[in-house]
Design a protein around this nucleic acid. Structure first.
Lengths: 124, 124
DNA sequence: CATTTGTACAACCAGATGGTTGTGCTTAAA
DNA sequence: TTTAAGCACAACCATCTGGTTGTACAAATG
């Protein structure tokens, strides 16, 4: 849980499984890229990695819980399909941070310009 | 560590602290956005959150280790500055996954077109 | 039918993670 | 010079994580 202090109140943010956590693990990132090429069953994913089927199944559970993988039963097979639209949340956060970052430089430019102006006033 | 199976060989990828792991924690994401607006010392960051200075310091250590925050001593204060260029790695991965995703639809379209062609051949 | 294939579920484990408290050391301010 | 501010480092802790093994069960296949 994250606790944020606002002006007069405290904001409690309950954590749940989210996309950022899902893509934090390199194995899960590779599973996502593998599935981006098309749906696969668990066995086909297992073949690519050096861990057990149960290990892969756990990763898929995490990805499923945050909506990055949909699971559909096909006979005795469990087909896994990537849902990349969830990645928007990540892209949005990156863009938002960059926006703030750029605004920071604008603020600095303005600050330096103000200093220059005040110098001109005193010297001129 | 991630172990990948290639055609005939095994690829061992040693894990280290990386950007994906750094932004997995919501508190760290908020620290980054807070720092995107300009450099701050640890105390100023602590004021925003409901955890101890030491807790924040640990988060900053993680961010520093993966190059997302630079630290400079200023008197007795430790100034923290965000380094957002590291986020390119995240943006690149998202874009790459989306590219594969789009190619998947192209492949499906081609597959369906081939089926249609073969039907036309047998019926025509 | 028996066997193989694909899977689910539970228990277990070592190490990482995200916090805490306590101590002590500089630097700035009174 | 005393006091307070800002911080680093270490130890500790509960929980999460990323794996493992073992068991069991349904669906194809011979």
């Amino acid at each position: 849980m994250v606790v944020l202090k606002l002006a007069t109140k405290w904001l409690y943010m309950i954590e749940r499984r989210d996309v950022f956590q899902a893509i934090a693990d390199p194995t899960r990132r590779m599973i996502i890229q593998r599935l981006s090429g098309g749906a696969l069953n668990i066995g086909q994913i297992v073949d690519d990695f050096g861990i057990t089927r149960q290990g892969i199944a756990k990763h898929l559970k995490v990805l499923h819980e945050c909506g990055m993988v949909t699971l559909t039963q096909r006979g005795r097979e469990q087909m896994c399909e990537a849902r990349l639209d969830q990645l928007d949340e990540v892209a949005d956060w990156v863009n938002e941070s960059r926006k703030l970052w750029n605004q920071r430089f604008e603020k600095l430019d303005k600050f330096l310009a103000d200093i220059k102006d005040s110098k001109n006033e005193t010297t001129g």
